[in-house]
């Protein structure tokens, strides 16, 4: 099976590639090297986990490949197009329909109801209001919040907000889903549900999923893992390789 998978991998298209990606934050003359030259390839349709200790640069990597922040040096290629070369309007299109984001701090818009939060990206994409409403309700039901569509973020628990954020990230059926710790604030049961949802999206709709996470259950469902440590890639492994060394992974996490 390992052999098979390796062959299929070489056939897969690279959807996101980073070339010597660096990000240095300068604050009050103190330089923090968040990413120190990362080369990586992400394949279309795979479920990728990014693991690493806190402060290792996962969120920074996530923001870079999502085209949400500009690198200090190096390049991010999405579908072999350099993100730095895109116009503002193309970038908006990319963020709106091609990539869905789930943030560590949810980033819901406080003055909008759950439903409005989910339908806003659809509005940006030019969807008719009725259609947006229907699709928004479907997505909220998918994450189990059909009843709470009229609630605002402050009226919901962290986990519920996280689920609204997942529904929102799926608004325009993106081909890539970027998740920054999607299960961090959820109880075991809900976390499992979210993982099932993500897995379902990956397997049934072929959505490429990239998850930054500490959650070890992710090991069971992801195709590949990237470990980041101090802003560099520590190790890349396929799941079947990892399963053998599960003990050592647990020690690192």
């Amino acid at each position: 099976m390992g052999q098979e998978a390796r062959e299929s991998q070489s056939l897969e298209r690279v959807i996101i590639r980073t070339v010597n990606l660096r990000k240095v934050y300068t604050q009050k003359k103190v330089e923090t090297i968040a990413l120190a030259g990362v080369d990586s390839e992400i394949y279309q349709g795979e479920f990728l986990s990014i693991m690493g200790p806190s402060g290792s640069g996962k969120s920074t990597f996530f923001n870079m490949i999502g085209g949400l922040d500009s690198p200090t040096s190096g390049r991010v290629m999405i579908d072999e197009v350099d993100v730095a070369q895109l116009t503002a309007i193309e970038l908006a299109f990319l963020r709106c329909r091609k990539i869905g984001y789930i943030f560590q701090q949810y980033n819901l818009i406080q003055y909008m109801t759950a439903l409005e939060n989910v339908t806003t990206p659809m509005t940006f994409a030019g969807l008719a209001p009725d259609e947006a409403r229907n699709r928004g309700m479907e997505l909220l039901e998918l994450v189990g919040l059909g009843e709470r569509w009229a609630h605002r973020p402050i009226e919901m628990s962290g986990g519920q907000q996280q689920r609204v954020a997942i529904a929102r990230s799926m608004a325009n059926l993106p081909s890539v889903l970027l998740c920054d710790e999607p299960t961090a604030n959820l109880d075991f049961q809900t976390g499992q549900e979210i993982l099932d949802i993500l897995k379902g999206l990956n397997q049934e709709r072929g959505v490429t999923i990239i998850c930054a996470t500490h959650d070890h259950r992710m090991l069971d469902i992801c195709d590949r893992l990237i470990w980041i440590r101090d802003g560099s890639i520590d190790r890349i492994a396929r799941r079947d390789e990892v399963e053998i060394n599960l003990g050592s992974v647990g020690g690192e996490g």
Binding site: G45, A92, S175
Partner: peptide, 13 residues
């Protein structure tokens, strides 16, 4: 399988 061909984001009314 949706591809990545980029178009222009429409302006909102």
């Amino acid at each position: 399988m949706p591809g990545f061909e980029l178009r222009e984001q429409p302006k909102m009314g």
